[in-house]
Design a protein around this nucleic acid. Sequence first.
DNA 1: GCGACAG
DNA 2: ATCTTGTCGC
Length: 227
Amino acid sequence: MKVRKLHDLDLSPSGASRLQKELAPKVVTGPPLDPTSINHVAGADVSTEGDRAYATVVVLDFPGLAPVEVRGFETELTFPYVPGLLAFREIPAVAGALEKVETPVDAVIFDAQGLAHPRRMGLASHLGLFLDVPSIGCAKTRLVGTHDEPGREKGNATDLVHKGEIIGKVLRTRSNVSPVYVSIGNHTDLQSAVELVLACSPKYRLPETTRQAHDAANHLRRGETLF
DNA sequence: GCGACAG
DNA sequence: ATCTTGTCGC
């Protein structure tokens, strides 16, 4: 998969925050995704151990969700975890794994926020700026924004609002499980993002993409086999 | 100043 | 993210 040349991410926290503000206007919201034309969906995740990062990307056929390709990339972590600056810590590792993907992918779902970020530049949007395919953010917990509790049945969702803007959706992917936070990464719209995440979560709370990528990342970290 | 805070 | 046992509920 092509990952455009990314700028230096080795900045100071304040410099990183400034960069996010100037990149935010570059995100393209829309157009909608046509599920019919989606043949492959990818999921990415990172497992860490000390200062080492183990990133993986799993490509699943769609709508079957069977894995067709798994890639891993290991590198050193140079940036600390700072709420709001996760991209600067994990992008180097994830980008390395994405570059190894050979299967044509139609959309990527990241285990992070997209526009649902204080400066509208979560990892899914940031990395999405360097990809030619639509990206989506699907996080397990909230970073910013307020929302009402979505209905308890699968498919229910409420708006995630921040500073008067709808920055994402709080989606119940299964009945009676805690909801996930879905937001636009780049090159797609919120409606499509929600539908794709739902289509990828037929059995578990988290989409199959993130579940499998998470498993693969742990395998990589423990030096086990990747598919 | 206090509390919140993706992974 | 990672460290960790049992336990409550569908």
